[in-house]
Design a protein around this nucleic acid. Structure first.
Lengths: 336, 336
DNA sequence: CTGAAAGCGCTTACAG
DNA sequence: CTGAAAGCGCTTACAG
């Protein structure tokens, strides 16, 4: 295990000064083509590997972006994280990632670690709970931080926020169900009081109010298990419910499984719409209607937004809301 | 945006030298408790953030591990990556992650970027194809690298490899199907010639050979779409097939959907076993039998293995094979 | 226990 | 176009 060669070794091998090597590294136009070639050859010959940490010590941008996600195992967030990372990579930035499993204390810890590693910026989909430690640390380090998908810290002048238009999505979905003559539409999953649940419910509530109908919220964890459980309760306790808008696709897919188990016909007996349009929606049986947030595009936009902030110095708008679309499939339309 | 304070600022505020501050940072026993307290207070007062890059320049271990994954959107790899990252984080290491989308050229690029960032070690689930650029760069940089799940570079003395016991898993699954009187067992998905497909098929082949039966491989992409497509072909072209071992759970779940679509009864007409035991298996209808690699445990083991290598200096065994278990559910047993 | 000095691998003005 | 020198924020012997 010999030590890695440095620019000094390269300079010696190429017969130039280390300043010249540094200029070659930065593709400076100051260096003569011939000299540049010599230096390049020496690098290859020695197996030189650029040391960004050292470079970073003098200049600014480390080329590292921190990505902190509350639930990376959820396919919606997986798609977000993956698309964001790949866009950053295409722009020459590496991504340090951490899953917090909805634990705000763990979140404070991983954010602290990222700051020590000198991330140039952070993209944060926060855990719920007391996040003051997280945001205090970020504020101290003065690192540009974009809140996405969940607004945990209300100071959006300092921590701009971006989110798909959940309200419009749930309104469209509800109106779609009402147009199909649904007379009792339930909202399944999520917990009121939580930001995301509230905004996903608000369009539902306003659409029902517009039609003069009463809402029904069946709160619960945003996962398949809950969706499956609720199928029975829905059949037993709320036989009048003929349509369900779910908090997310996982709940909806679980509900689909639960209905299959009970022999309940989805799309006619019960119309179901999910939220997020994860890849699995196309492959369920029946296929699941869903509100698409086009999360891959959203992720790429976030990557470009944070890099622009970094380079330009001016923060993005305090709040960005991106459009959503309703994707209709058999689970709500009944056409298998 | 004022500059971040450094140990010099802290030293001045605490009335000590910067060496002392450095010792406090390292929890050295040399510093008097009282002095330590003074320094700590000064750090908090100034909002000091430790700069690891600078520290790394002098000492060795940067506390950064690179994780490169061929398909991060696949839940099997998502679970692996997330569990690995969380274990590394618990041990004080940050994770730089990159998805390569099965693109060996992109893989070489992201690995190069990670080496520039000074990762102390790499964990790599490689893309297929020409990976020489990837491994040449790693060899030049002399960074400990653990190959996982897929052996792309044959030199395992230099690049140790770890994988669950796919062969045993497919043998157990096949024997299970044969014990239930299946007479024609197909292997669905994957491509022969690929390492993972070959090892997942080998146990299947040997179990069939042991029973004096002929194998049938229906090759294809390892995703839900393919599984769904194949359901029709299976019914039309291979009506004698009464059991299917799938390359992975995604194929099996797609096949389940396809059978539902065709009205084919899974568990009796056709017994199905998947591979990987991703979380969705419990929630499908019928629930999917699968070979569990206990990937979360595997991931944590890999985290500890690579850190041990880093600290100890001695590489792990050239090949590690971890046990798998067969999880029986309704899709193969027919008990709904 | 604490301080002064050198050095990690780069970049950045500044000369020439 | 190229080189000599200082400095980025730390750690590490070495004195005291």
């Amino acid at each position: 295990m010999d030590k890695r060669p440095t620019i000094i070794d390269v300079a010696r091998a190429a017969g130039v000064s280390k300043s010249t090597v540094s200029l070659v590294l930065q593709n400076s136009a100051l260096v003569r083509t011939e000299t540049r070639e010599d230096v390049r050859k020496a690098m290859v010959a020695l197996g030189y590997v650029y040391n960004r940490s050292a470079a970073n010590l003098r200049s600014a941008d480390a080329g590292l972006i921190g990505l902190v996600i509350n639930d990376l195992r959820n396919p919606f967030f997986t798609e977000f994280a993956t698309s964001l990372q790949m866009e950053l990579s295409a722009q020459g930035y590496a991504t340090v990632i951490a899953n917090t499993d909805e634990d705000s204390a763990l979140q404070a810890q991983v954010v602290g670690a990222m700051l020590e590693h000198g991330v140039s910026a952070l993209v944060l989909s926060s855990a719920y709970g007391d996040v003051s430690a997280t945001f205090d640390a970020i504020a101290r380090a003065n690192v540009p931080t974009l809140q996405v998908l969940r607004r945990a810290e209300p100071d959006r002048d300092r921590f701009p926020f971006a989110v798909p238009d959940y309200t419009a999505g749930s309104r469209m979905a509800t109106e779609h169900l009402l147009a199909l003559k649904a007379r009792r539409v339930a909202f399944v999953g999520g917990f009121s009081g939580r930001e995301v649940t509230d905004s996903r419910m608000s369009g539902y509530l306003s659409a029902l109010a517009g039609a003069g109908l009463q809402p029904l919220h069946l709160p619960g964890r945003p996962d398949r298990d809950f969706g499956r459980e609720i199928a029975g309760r829905l059949a037993r306790e709320h036989p009048d419910v003929d349509a369900a808008l779910c908090f997310n696709d996982l709940v909806a897919l679980g509900l689909l499984t639960g209905c299959a188990e009970l022999g309940r016909k989805v799309g006619s007996d019960l119309r179901i719409v999910g939220f997020d349009d994860i890849a699995d929606c196309r492959q369920s049986w029946p296929a699941l209607s869903s509100v698409s947030c086009d999360i891959a595009t959203f992720a790429r936009l976030m990557a470009r937004t944070v890099l622009h902030w970094l380079k330009d110095g001016t923060p993005p708008p305090r709040e960005t809301v991106t459009p959503v679309t309703l994707i209709l499939r058999a689970s709500s339309e009944g056409v298998w």
